[in-house]
Design a binder for these strands. Structure first.
Length: 586
RNA sequence: GCGGUGGUAGCUCAGCCGGAUAGAGCAACGGAUUUCUAAUCCGUCGGUCGUGGGUUCGAGUCCCGCCCACCGCGCCA
């Protein structure tokens, strides 16, 4: 029997089969609940017998013993199995089984093939980043971009075809104000030098010049109507705003390793909302209320009275209208089996209402209903818990944050490695600095608010990207010194089973990679992967400190090189899934 | 008022459908190394898990009440 990729699921299946073989009553209801265990109790632990036995008034220990007695020979050969406490079943992989797993999953392709079962044959669309055009991206835009990209990569790794869609905020009332400001105060020189900076300035001028109830606001609205009606001058301006914005955004995306498949912004759906109104009306899902078209959800405690406004009383579309049209387009034309939308938590109500409405609408029209997920994340706040500002009162620009990260990393590289040529030090600083920013965001559970501090974001020790990248660089260094490649088959040929405590701890950790991938993907929470990689790098560092790799004895040297090679493979793969780049020296 | 999210060590955070003695990083303190890169490793210190009840063999985790913080709730996105 071949070695399973995810050992936890493998033991889960084995226990279910053993329960049936043992003749347990309702054996099909027995859920083994295998999970990775505290290392003190072995590698994997099954808790399910306790609940099963309790419901049937059986002795849990005796039940566990009956099940374990029926476990297949392969499982018994691979593990030490013990029954502990009230009836936990503990599996501890034998060193020979560890070596077997490491030999089986020896390449990124092998790992990906093992992971691909989760989403094979499915198409997932991820809507993330989604900034407003004609404005700079600031730190508030970081989380969606970084978390969204990590989710795209983990979904792709687990077998999905992934469509990356940037749902730009490129339509709506703000463009009336921007055109108003542009036509009065545009500075051609500034526009040529730094277009987004100038457009943002003009938008602010336009906004301040058009207070509620003012004749200027009416004028801005007329500019918007002209744009919507195809006025050539305003359409040309709008196109210019969009192009300049996309060029500026791409500079940030390039630094973060992000490449979108589509930029289908709100404007794209402008002519697709009439169908939404018609179908929601004819199916009776939407109704007129106070002049607007709204959807109530009578079965929902809150949304039975809190309306989802689908069309404004003045007949214009809003966020809800275009999001409904967007959902339909993604299901109908992009054939999405799953849709993931990455925005901050303040929009949770909106998406809950949107998804309820989409499900009713698609069901009524017999459209296939995709799996819908709102991946929300907490706000970025300053030390005082309030929205983040610089001293001058402006929000911190994303570009400035990334620049600062690279500068700080450059100072450290220069201090550590003054002899490297400057261009090398710059390259290293780029990867370390940007990686630190990405990792700082990803390592935290996305639900909680994000407390921004330069020192935390740019920390270079502890649970940070540099710690992981450093482990990778040290492994490369060993292979350079040994003058072999990590994938050299000769290593595997003579490697013997791991023996020292640090070797075994490292090997055991490596076999837990599939479970980390599963957790991160199922919950759409990349921090589970970060946690695993940090622990793996820690186990590697301990091993690196305790066991010299390049010893004379060929089999010992080979087994340690094998551990180095697999640690490198999994760290590289995992960091790449998070959207980070790695280094061969630093 | 209704609802969402959160409250765990001095600080920043993990804790995976309830499971074994609650874990990291930073900070503080002590130790290892003239190395396969010390951006490292080992150790010490540090917590009535907001609070009061309840369910359970077992609760940081589930249920109910209360307190605190941030956020959302009819035409912004």
């Amino acid at each position: 029997m071949p070695m399973a990729f995810n050992l936890a699921s493998d033991f889960d299946r084995a226990l279910k089969a053993a329960a049936a073989a043992a003749g347990l009553e309702d054996a099909s209801d027995f859920v083994p609940e295998v999970r990775t265990a505290d290392a003190r109790h072995g590698d994997f632990q099954a808790n399910g017998v306790l609940g099963y036995a309790k419901a049937r008034k059986l002795n849990p220990r005796a039940t566990s013993e009956k099940i374990v007695a029926q476990l297949s020979g392969e499982v018994r050969d691979r593990c030490e199995i013990t029954i502990a406490g009230p009836g936990f079943i503990n599996f501890t992989l034998k060193p020979a089984a560890l070596l077997e797993w490491l030999r089986t999953f020896s390449t990124r392709e092998a790992l990906a093939a093992g992971a691909a079962a989760a989403h094979a044959g499915q198409t997932w669309l991820v809507d993330y980043s989604s900034p407003n055009t004609a404005k700079q991206m600031h730190v508030g835009h970081l989380r969606s971009a970084v978390i969204g990209e990590a989710i795209c990569r983990t979904l792709a790794f687990t077998g999905a075809r992934v469509i990356r869609d940037n749902h730009l905020g490129d339509w709506g009332t703000q463009f009336g104000k921007l055109i108003h400001g542009y036509k009065r105060w545009a500075n051609p020189a500034a526009l040529a030098a730094d277009p987004i900076e100038e457009l943002e300035r003009l938008y602010k001028l336009g906004h301040n010049a058009t207070p509620d109830g003012s004749p200027e606001l009416d004028e801005a609205r007329r500019e918007l109507v002209k744009l919507q009606n195809g006025d050539p001058e305003n359409v040309r301006l709008w196109q210019k705003f969009t192009e300049e914005s996309r060029l500026a955004f791409q500079q940030i995306y390039d630094r973060l390793g992000i490449r979108f498949d589509h930029f289908l912004g709100e404007s794209f759906y402008n002519d697709k909302v009439d169908r939404v109104y018609r179908e929601l009306g004819e199916t009776g899902i939407a109704q007129e209320s106070e002049g607007a078209l709204v959807v109530f959800h009578p079965e929902h405690p809150r949304f039975k009275t809190q309306p989802f406004i689908v069309r404004k009383a003045d007949g214009a579309s809003n966020y809800a209208s275009t999001d409904l049209a967007t959902a339909l387009y993604r299901a109908e034309h992009l054939h999405a089996d799953g849709i993931v939308i990455v925005t901050d938590f303040r929009q949770a109500d909106h998406f809950e209402q949107l998804f309820l409405t989409v499900k009713k609408w698609f069901t009524a029209k017999a459209y296939r209903v995709p799996e819908l997920h709102h991946v929300s994340f907490g706000a970025v706040t300053g030390e005082d818990g309030k929205a983040l500002k610089t001293r001058s009162g402006d929000v911190i620009r994303l570009k400035a944050l990334l620049d600062e990260a690279e500068e700080r990393a450059f100072a450290i590289v220069t201090e550590k490695n003054p002899d490297l040529p400057e261009s090398d030090r710059r390259d290293i600083a780029r990867i370390v600095g940007i990686g630190a920013v990405q990792y700082a965001d990803l390592a935290q559970n996305r639900s909680s608010n994000y407390l921004f501090s330069w020192d935390k974001m740019l920390a270079l020790e502890g649970n940070t990207a540099p710690y992981l990248l450093y482990a990778v660089a040290r492994i490369h260094s060993i292979f350079r010194k040994a003058a072999v490649r990590p994938d050299d088959p000769a290593i595997e040929g003579i490697a013997i089973i791991p023996e020292t405590p640090t070797e075994i701890a490292l090997a055991r950790k490596l076999t837990k990679f599939p479970d980390a991938i599963r957790l991160a993907t199922e919950s759409l929470r990349p921090h589970y992967l970060c946690l695993f990689l940090f622990e793996l790098a820690g186990d590697y560092s301990s091993f690196n400190n305790a066991d010299k790799v390049l010893v004379e004895d060929p089999p010992i040297r080979a087994r340690r090189l094998l551990l180095c090679a697999r640690t490198l493979l999994i760290l590289d793969t995992g960091l790449q899934l998070l959207g980070l780049r790695t280094l061969t020296r630093m």
